[in-house]
């Protein structure tokens, strides 16, 4: 479980996060949604320690991250898996080397053991015949799978995904969403996904946090989000013609 208390972060005169307080449950796919510029990426990067918050606390299973020294923070980071928006695979490494990278850095496994473990997660994310290819030689959807495989290879306790299905076709995006949800359940991890894709919300939104201009505007789950009276949420959800039509059909019924 990850708890966030009164988190504030600004850049210069601009305050991006304005005292966020929320929590993300273990074994659930927690979604952070909001319009572009609402502070989603800053929020996720602050939780990851890539940005130092101006104030507030982030607690990983009750342990306050900012109170820890470097080695203790590193110990927590070793338990974090991250899927970046652009996959962030290492260009000079093959798919297999990318996946084995966290094992090389943090375990004392032999190369054969690392390869075995890498192959287990490669099978888990359904990547076939790609072990020796470079990231530039595989498709965007496959790159996302490699990124997920790299994120879970070290058995993380927390999985962060920054817009994991951006740039993917709707079918592949759904496959990636479902894969993340399956992994969350299978390994019982705390998963936090940053997205503005309403399909993801409908597919896997077990807990949804809606951000508006750096404030927590609403939280709930995927069934509640379509029934809420919160105007900001409904404006966001029904901004696309598809969802407007769905709503019209629901009202007609």
């Amino acid at each position: 479980m990850i708890e966030v208390r009164e988190l504030r972060k600004g850049f210069g005169d601009v305050e991006v996060l304005k005292g966020l307080t929320t929590s993300f449950d273990k074994g659930k796919t927690n979604l952070i949604i909001g319009q572009s510029g609402s502070g989603k990426t800053v929020f996720i990067k602050s939780m990851l320690g890539l940005f130092r918050p101006d104030s507030g606390k982030i607690l990983y299973d009750g342990i306050c991250y900012s109170d820890l020294d470097f080695e203790e923070q590193r110990a927590i980071r070793e338990k974090i898996g991250m899927v970046f928006q652009g996959s962030a695979l290492f260009d000079s490494m093959t798919v297999e080397e990318n996946i084995m990278f966290p094992l090389q850095m943090f375990t004392k496994m032999k190369k054969t053991e690392m390869r075995e473990r890498a192959n287990v997660v490669i099978d888990r994310v359904n990547l076939e015949n790609a072990n020796h290819k470079l990231p530039s030689e595989i498709s965007g959807g496959m790159q996302k799978r490699v990124a997920i495989a790299r994120a879970i290879v070290n058995n993380p306790r927390y999985l962060f995904c920054d817009e994991p299905n951006s740039g993917l076709d709707p079918h592949t995006a759904t496959v990636i969403d479902n894969l993340i949800q399956e992994i969350t359940k299978e390994f019982n991890i705390t998963t936090i996904i940053n997205t503005h894709d309403m399909n993801s919300v409908m597919e896997i939104g077990e807990k949804i946090v809606f951000l508006k201009e750096g404030n927590l505007a609403w939280e709930g789950d995927k069934t509640q989000i379509f029934r809420t009276d919160n105007e900001e949420v409904t404006n966001f959800v029904y901004s696309s013609n598809l969802f407007k039509m769905v709503r019209k059909a629901q009202n007609a019924q």
Partner: peptide, 8 residues
């Protein structure tokens, strides 16, 4: 960022 998230 990926390296730093891993604690490297």
């Amino acid at each position: 960022d990926a390296l730093e998230v891993m604690g490297i």
